[in-house]
Design a binder for these strands. Structure first.
Lengths: 145, 145
DNA sequence: CCGAATCCACCTTGATACTG
DNA sequence: CAGTATCAAGGTGGATTCGG
């Protein structure tokens, strides 16, 4: 489809989603959030074909979510690390995970913990001003201009 | 790609994301959240080819995010309305929107308001227990079993 | 006119093999 | 290890058609 139409449109959902337009991209970012950085880590973890992985990584670098970083000179080797933009995508992953667990759970699932306290994480999306969960609010959307 | 591998895997991100595996699905859900229900509303709003729209709608119905509902008998007409599962996806859209606005803003964007108070919404993903934003936390993921 | 189904040229995807 | 080359298969969207 024509991502660019949404990438530059007025809808903030389109602006964001068009940078992570498919399942591979989402799963690559998940892996990156888990600390994976190398081509082969992604490839093995995801079971993705190498040419596809190459393209996806390039697109994520292009859009500023990942950054190539040289970790060996001879032989030359790059790793892919999350930028601050990419790290900011992590809450989206958590929101997806919470939704996935609630509605499509039914099996053994990996779980996220607070690394400091060891407490299990339960992600909720709230409005920063009122603190109310968005799922309990009535919302209205307004177009610009 | 092979969605089903992730749809039934142990990763909650995969469980969720595989049900909304592409940009069209996300945008359809956004439209649905805006109150669109009819085939032609989606088609015109998104500029999507009708055969593709048919497939995506059917997939979303299949996965329980949308529900077909007959609104006219003669002629027979169905509309697509969000199920509770589909409504629960709205926080994900908001998280995407917040991320998109922060990192790819730079233009006129539509904005979400609290329908009651008229206040602008600023979505944040927090941990329900501690109330802390996830973006400020150090997380650790644990595999099942 | 609404909600599709069908056909078709095109492009993307991904499995495999291969290279530095 | 980190990709590129090749190529078959399937997805994509435009045009058209069709029933209500």
């Amino acid at each position: 489809m024509d991502n660019e139409k949404y990438a530059s449109g007025t809808c903030p959902v389109g602006r964001g989603a068009s940078r992570v337009p498919d399942l591979w991209s989402i799963m690559i970012l998940r892996d990156a959030a888990l600390g994976h950085t190398r081509f082969d880590q992604f490839r093995k973890s995801l079971g993705i074909a190498p040419n596809i992985l190459t393209r996806r990584l390039a697109a994520l670098v292009e859009d500023g979510l990942l950054e190539k970083s040289r970790y060996s000179e001879r032989p030359p080797r790059d790793e892919y690390v999350l930028t601050s933009c990419g790290r900011d995508y992590l809450p989206v992953l958590q929101a997806i995970a919470a939704w996935g667990t609630k509605h499509f759970g039914g099996g053994p699932l990996s779980t996220t913990f607070d690394a400091d306290t060891g407490q299990k994480i339960e992600p909720v999306v709230i409005d920063r001003v009122t603190g109310k969960p968005l799922s309990e609010m009535k919302l209205r959307v307004e177009q610009p201009g």
